[in-house]
């Protein structure tokens, strides 16, 4: 189990680094897919089977397909990728590093979160997730559903409006 954790953790971190460092957008997307798959592996190690599968279906299967789709349609590649000047890059690295140090310093002591229910291995199973969503957190769940619905309708409206004017 422990080795599996280190294995997945290594894949997650390496692929996440590749997402930001890869030159070609398509390689970034593939690295992100690998990253999502390894995170699904982490969920399975935590016995959260439902979350793992939904994670693969939604993120890997649907959202990343759309990413890939857009990249293929627009034919983005290394040449169309905007190249920043050296000075910009160095200053960005310095600023990011300083920000990281600040964050680490601020949260180093305050972030000792205890697991809510470390002994309960069944917390990620379908029935448990369903109970949590539809019993304990019903209102937030419904509100976020309405939010998604309005986002969908809004996107449709914008698309139709453009079609009507042209």
């Amino acid at each position: 189990m422990q080795y599996l954790f280190y294995f997945f953790a290594a894949i997650s971190i390496i692929s996440a680094l590749m997402v930001v460092s890869a030159r070609s957008p398509i390689n970034s997307v593939i690295a992100l897919i690998v990253c999502f798959l390894s995170i699904a592996g982490h969920y399975i190690l935590l016995n959260a089977q439902f979350l793992a599968m939904v994670h693969i279906i939604v993120y890997t299967g649907a959202i990343m397909v759309l990413f890939l789709y857009v990249i293929m349609m627009l034919n983005l590649n290394q040449r169309t990728e905007p190249q920043k000047k050296l000075l910009t890059r160095i200053s960005a690295v310095v600023a990011g590093g300083v920000f990281l140090i600040t964050l680490l310093g601020a949260t180093r002591q305050g972030l000792q979160i205890a697991a809510a229910n470390p002994e309960d291995a069944s917390i990620g199973l379908v029935s448990q997730v369903g109970m949590a969503l539809f019993k304990d957190y019903l209102l937030p769940f419904e509100v976020s559903s309405v939010l998604f619905l309005s986002a969908m309708v809004g996107a449709m409206m914008l698309g139709l409006k453009e079609k009507a004017t042209t």
Binding site: I33, Q49, F50, M53, T60, G61, L68, Y69, V126
Partner: peptide, 25 residues
């Protein structure tokens, strides 16, 4: 026999698209 057998099949099917997409591109 995982408790989420159907979802596992859906997950595999949804990854299978990449074979076609990446190969075609």
């Amino acid at each position: 026999d995982p408790g989420i057998g159907i979802l596992y099949i859906f997950a595999m099917v949804s990854i299978g698209v990449y074979g076609i997409m990446l190969g075609g591109w």
